Amino acid sequence: MSRSEDIRAAALELFTRRGYETTTMSDIGDAVGMRGPSLYKHVASKQDLLAGIMLGTMRNLLALHRAAIATAEDPVARLRRATEAHVRFHARHRMEAFVGNREIRSLSEPHRTDVLALRAEYETGFRDLIAAGVTAGAFRVPSVRLASYAILDLGMGVAAWYREDGELDEDTLVWYYGDLALRLAGADPAP
């Protein structure tokens, strides 16, 4: 890992455990064995660290979403693959998900607007998948927007409780949540 990656990892862990507001640059420096002046050679500010974590998380989610749906045309398969990618990311990147959800309030402009725009784009991707499925007759929902929010909440909730050594392995969890997403979208149950 590079020094910048070490600093990012330490900041992420501290923001998760202590919160952004109570974490200081000195805390981050201590976590990586650096004093303030040396730390500032790698990062401009605590705010830049938070923004980098949150923007990186959203960009990763968008890239995974695009890759997941690129290999299918069928609306049911596309929604399943998008949901599986969403859930898998949240199972593997719990700290990023936690910080991304809790610390949006701590972002200053223009970072807050940038992160919110990426979040809106991500949600729109799910909404568009569901709307396409409704148009194709594969899904039946009273509200496309509500269905997309419910599916996104499923994945985000995984970050709060999932553990690798828990009751379900990651692949089983991902498959099960894919089924739940299809039910939320009103897909016909599999035979």
Results as ranks from 00 to 15, higher is better:
residue 2 S to R: 13
residue 7 I to Q: 00
residue 8 R to L: 14
residue 8 R to C: 07
residue 10 A to V: 00
residue 10 A to T: 00
residue 11 A to Y: 00
residue 12 L to A: 02
residue 12 L to D: 02
residue 12 L to W: 01
residue 14 L to H: 00
residue 15 F to T: 07
residue 15 F to H: 06
residue 22 T to H: 13
residue 23 T to G: 03
residue 25 M to T: 14
residue 26 S to K: 13
residue 27 D to R: 03
residue 27 D to Y: 08
residue 30 D to V: 09
residue 30 D to A: 15
residue 30 D to N: 13
residue 31 A to C: 04
residue 33 G to S: 08
residue 33 G to I: 04
residue 33 G to T: 07
residue 36 G to I: 07
residue 36 G to A: 14
residue 36 G to S: 14
residue 36 G to H: 12
residue 37 P to W: 00
residue 39 L to G: 02
residue 39 L to S: 07
residue 39 L to T: 05
residue 40 Y to D: 00
residue 41 K to C: 12
residue 41 K to P: 01
residue 42 H to Q: 15
residue 42 H to L: 13
residue 44 A to H: 07
residue 44 A to T: 09
residue 45 S to H: 08
residue 45 S to I: 09
residue 46 K to M: 05
residue 47 Q to L: 10
residue 47 Q to Y: 08
residue 49 L to K: 03
residue 49 L to G: 05
residue 50 L to N: 01
residue 51 A to W: 01
residue 51 A to L: 01
residue 52 G to C: 14
residue 53 I to L: 15
residue 54 M to V: 04
residue 56 G to S: 09
residue 59 R to S: 13
residue 60 N to R: 15
residue 60 N to M: 14
residue 63 A to V: 09
residue 64 L to V: 04
residue 64 L to Y: 05
residue 66 R to L: 11
residue 67 A to M: 06
residue 67 A to W: 01
residue 69 I to N: 02
residue 71 T to G: 12
residue 72 A to W: 06
residue 74 D to A: 15
residue 77 A to E: 12
residue 78 R to H: 09
residue 78 R to V: 12
residue 81 R to K: 09
residue 81 R to W: 04
residue 81 R to M: 10
residue 84 E to Y: 03
residue 90 H to W: 05
residue 92 R to Y: 04
residue 95 M to L: 12
residue 98 F to V: 10
residue 99 V to T: 00
residue 100 G to M: 04
residue 101 N to D: 14
residue 103 E to T: 02
residue 104 I to C: 04
residue 104 I to A: 10
residue 105 R to F: 11
residue 106 S to L: 13
residue 106 S to F: 06
residue 109 E to H: 11
residue 109 E to L: 11
residue 110 P to S: 09
residue 113 T to N: 08
residue 114 D to V: 08
residue 114 D to I: 06
residue 116 L to V: 07
residue 117 A to L: 12
residue 117 A to C: 05
residue 118 L to D: 04
residue 119 R to T: 11
residue 120 A to M: 12
residue 120 A to F: 11
residue 121 E to N: 00
residue 121 E to Q: 12
residue 123 E to Q: 14
residue 123 E to K: 15
residue 125 G to T: 09
residue 126 F to S: 09
residue 128 D to Q: 13
residue 130 I to S: 07
residue 130 I to G: 06
residue 132 A to H: 06
residue 134 V to H: 02
residue 135 T to Y: 05
residue 136 A to Y: 02
residue 139 F to H: 02
residue 139 F to M: 06
residue 140 R to C: 10
residue 141 V to C: 13
residue 142 P to D: 15
residue 144 V to H: 01
residue 145 R to K: 14
residue 146 L to H: 13
residue 148 S to H: 06
residue 148 S to L: 08
residue 150 A to K: 14
residue 151 I to H: 05
residue 152 L to S: 06
residue 154 L to F: 07
residue 154 L to R: 04
residue 155 G to F: 03
residue 156 M to I: 08
residue 158 V to M: 07
residue 159 A to G: 03
residue 161 W to N: 10
residue 162 Y to R: 05
residue 165 D to C: 09
residue 166 G to S: 15
residue 168 L to S: 11
residue 168 L to D: 09
residue 170 E to W: 00
residue 171 D to V: 11
residue 172 T to I: 04
residue 172 T to Q: 10
residue 172 T to Y: 01
residue 173 L to A: 07
residue 173 L to V: 05
residue 175 W to D: 13
residue 178 G to I: 11
residue 181 A to Q: 07
residue 182 L to V: 08
residue 183 R to P: 02
residue 183 R to S: 10
residue 186 G to A: 06
residue 188 D to P: 02
residue 189 P to M: 05
